[in-house]
Amino acid sequence: MIRSEIIRDIAPILRDQLVVCNIGLPSQELHMIDDQASTFYMLGTMGLSSSIGLGVALAQQKTVISIDGDGSVLTNLGTLPTIANNVADNFILLIIDNGSYGSTGDQPTYAGKKTSLTAVARACGCENVIECHAEETGVVLQAAIDSKVMTVIVAKCESGNIKVPVITKDPVVIRDRFMNEVVRTDE
């Protein structure tokens, strides 16, 4: 299974949640598969999906899922101690770990070599870290949502990409519709 197949699998679960989606192919894939106003697509700024998501989670009550990559977490490794020490039980960090920098041509990352992001997250103090196979991602993600406990998920998958169009939506539109979803109350 590759990242786009995981995203296709979990899209029905993501639909009802606030989602912050990583720059590049992950955002483009999710946007193509199931565009939702409740998804904040990152058009730049590699590495900050987890930081943005944690900020949203700490500021309000709804569940927030940050979709991140192994390469992006390595870029902003300082995020893991911050997450561990600022527990938001409405926050889930989903790291799709394909062991490569997918958006730039699948160059290998250290997470695909000797470095375990699961072990790093635990060493940083994150208390609920679950590593799973790609196929289990949906089940693990749904359980994390239902648990209402801050969870870091490391979903291991194969590297590889599909052809997707770039996102041409205006960033202010993306931000505005996301903020409207933050404050929307279900009737």
């Binding site: 912050v20 904040f40 700024t45 590495g47 900050l48 987890s50 930081s51 943005i52 998501g53 944690l54 900020g55 949203v56 989670a57 700490l58 500021a59 309000q60 902003n76 300082g78 995020t79 911050t82 931000r175 996301f178 903020m179 933050v182 404050v183």
Partner: peptide
């Protein structure tokens, strides 16, 4: 990282 947190907090209200 801090600016990412601030961006999130702003969008969270």
């Amino acid at each position: 990282e801090g600016m990412g947190l601030c961006a999130g907090a702003f969008m969270g209200g």
